[in-house]
Design a protein around this nucleic acid. Structure first.
Lengths: 167, 167
DNA sequence: TGGGAAATGATGGGGGTCAATGGGATTTGA
DNA sequence: TCAAATCCCATTGACCCCCATCATTTCCCA
């Protein structure tokens, strides 16, 4: 149930692109056969997630004060600008023109796994950023403190579903 | 079911507008085939929801002190000014003149998903506001604290069908 | 271990279907 | 009786189903 790796696929003349088989497999138990995409806040990229992840975002927004400005902004930015994209018979989606333009995608799309979510990039834009990010990580000598297995929620091995990152 | 995305439809000469297919699908199990609309108290927009959500609002109002000013005001603004709008055979509603005027809608209507509810806007008014929301969200460095999967309602998660529930 | 089937995933494109829209006809209700 | 709401049907264009082809990987067996 994790999205991992980078997969580059072609955007065809009809605006369609195949969702990588690995990603589709990670989504196959979902009630909605397709993915959600919305514009990233920080990057020239698209954020992608599953239906259940989107439900989780909506449920989390419900918890914020219903009339707070922050909830309003997040609802407009995430829920209001998201696109629900069903697969066709071959597991492709149609990338809306608005999103193609935003992410400055041309004839290729990079699907980049980020665990529970993934991103879509113009490969030419993503590549140098990835290198820079790798360099920063190395220079920083960053290490990741792993949670002990025993603290993970039940069923977290194949069907893991608990982390806090929504960026 | 969730309301997501922004869908722009045309308001015809008879004051009719098609409810987006995706939104109708999210409502199809409702007992009332149509939607509720009322004036937003913060924005130049219309709040929209399903019959069952309106029930939920009424129930929440019940919990407030029955004679408080706040309950009075909310009852007036929400329940008192709400319109129950049935679909015609093609899934359209007739937008009451009062609401068209309030939201300053002209020949187009933007349906904007907000999870359990949605809003109707004049697209020309909504667009710059959405941009501003995005900017504020970015500057605020806002991240959404996601609820743990286990607190989501059944059916909102794929785990309902796999080993996670078995234990 | 090399090479060729066979299976599977990715890509291309034709055409049918249905959602969105427009407008006329009929009914309802004040 | 008139106006507004509802029903009904026509049009159109985007989307989705289907199939054909191409590219890779896997598998099998010599």
């Amino acid at each position: 149930m994790l999205f991992t790796g980078t997969h580059i696929h072609k955007l065809d003349r009809k605006g369609r692109v195949s969702v990588p088989k690995r990603f589709r497999a990670a989504l196959e138990l979902e009630e909605f056969a397709g993915i959600y995409l919305y514009q990233s806040h920080k990057e020239s990229a698209l954020e992608g997630c599953s239906h259940s992840h989107m439900e989780r975002i909506a449920a989390s927004l419900d918890e914020l004060d219903m009339f707070s400005d922050e909830a309003d902004d997040l609802a407009d930015t995430i829920l209001g600008s998201s696109h629900m994209l069903p697969y066709d018979g071959e597991g492709r989606i149609i990338l809306p023109a608005e999103l193609i333009e935003f992410a400055r995608i041309e004839d290729q799309v990079a699907f980049v796994g980020r665990g529970r979510t993934f991103r879509l990039w113009n490969p030419d834009i993503f590549k140098p950023l990835q290198e820079a990010s790798r360099t920063r990580t190395l220079n920083r000598g960053a290490t990741l403190k792993l949670k002990p297995m025993t603290e993970l929620p039940k069923g977290a091995r194949p069907g893991t579903m608990n982390e806090e990152d929504a960026s």
